[in-house]
């Protein structure tokens, strides 16, 4: 099986993985929900995640029916919506972040109905400085049109591969990959269960035979230890629910950003060790 060799992209995602590869480092990808726990938390949180050692930022688009999320991110979605969050406000936050950070890729993650409701989403997202999009409920078969529209404005659609994805299907997904591939480490919702490291190792090794596109692993990675175990077999790891919980438990923006920075640095150390 010949590998799919992607010409290196010119966007921030490709550049970031290029830099990390040249330094022999793995990517730390962090997730927080936009507008949670308060509207004024998100942009400072993004900067402190970068300060703590995050290389790519995922920002959740709050949605009323987040059917693939575990309790932590469900609660974050409800809080954010109660704060009046909308997709337009998510884009404003990205634009504000971009005023002082032009290097760190920002990837929006959410559910298709949010994006469908904004007719000119590709243009507006591109103008705000968005680099990638992960749609939890958009499998490859349904996503060709959106991927094409976003490719025209240099936004990568990032496909997910699950433990249940067959080899044949994985080849289809891989051949349409852009940005990076997101391997879902467990059968379950975000932040749930215990990580089956052996299975992750086996599946990521198989995916590696198919493609040179960067491979990140997420769902169920909570701390430095699990991050280290998984990053050995991938180009990066995604941490979400643990950070979301940390923010929810913080008294104010200052303490939330400080705790985020510390937690991110600890996970960074685990990966680099």
């Amino acid at each position: 099986m010949p590998k799919t060799n992607r010409s290196p992209g010119t966007g921030r995602i490709a550049q970031q993985f290029e830099i990390l590869r040249s330094q022999g480092k793995k990517a730390l990808v962090t997730f927080v929900t936009a507008g949670d726990p308060g509207l004024n938390y998100t942009v400072p949180a993004m900067h402190s995640l970068v300060a703590g050692g995050a290389n790519l930022l995922e920002l959740g688009i709050p949605f009323s029916d987040p059917e693939a999320e575990g309790p932590a991110i469900q609660a974050a979605n409800e809080r954010a919506l109660a704060n009046g969050m909308t997709l337009a406000k998510v884009l404003d936050m990205v634009a504000e972040f971009r005023q002082t950070d032009l290097a760190t890729p920002v990837i929006l993650m959410g559910y298709l109905n949010s994006v469908l409701a904004m007719a000119d989403f590709p243009q507006r997202a591109s103008q705000a400085g968005v680099d990638g999009l992960i749609m939890v409920n958009l499998p490859l078969e349904e996503g060709a049109e959106l991927q094409q529209a976003l490719r025209a404005v240099n936004i990568d659609v990032i496909w997910l591969v699950a433990p249940t994805t067959s080899d044949e299907r994985a080849r289809d997904v891989v051949s349409n990959a852009s940005g990076f591939l997101y391997y879902v480490s467990l059968k379950g919702t975000t932040g749930s269960g215990s990580l089956p490291v052996d299975e992750v190792t086996e599946r990521t090794a198989y995916l590696r035979t198919l493609t040179d596109v960067p491979l990140c692993v997420g769902f169920g990675i909570k701390d430095a230890e699990t991050a280290r175990a998984v990053s050995a077999h991938a180009d990066g790891v995604v941490v979400g629910s643990a950070l979301v919980q940390l923010m929810a438990q913080s008294a104010d923006v200052a303490s939330a950003t400080e705790r985020l920075r510390t937690a991110t640095a600890a996970i960074r150390q685990g990966i680099d060790a």
Binding site: E67, L112, P163, V184
Partner: peptide, 12 residues
């Protein structure tokens, strides 16, 4: 119609 679900469910 169609099938708009998490990747994990497509196999089932």
């Amino acid at each position: 119609g169609g099938r708009f679900v998490a990747e994990t469910l497509t196999h089932a």
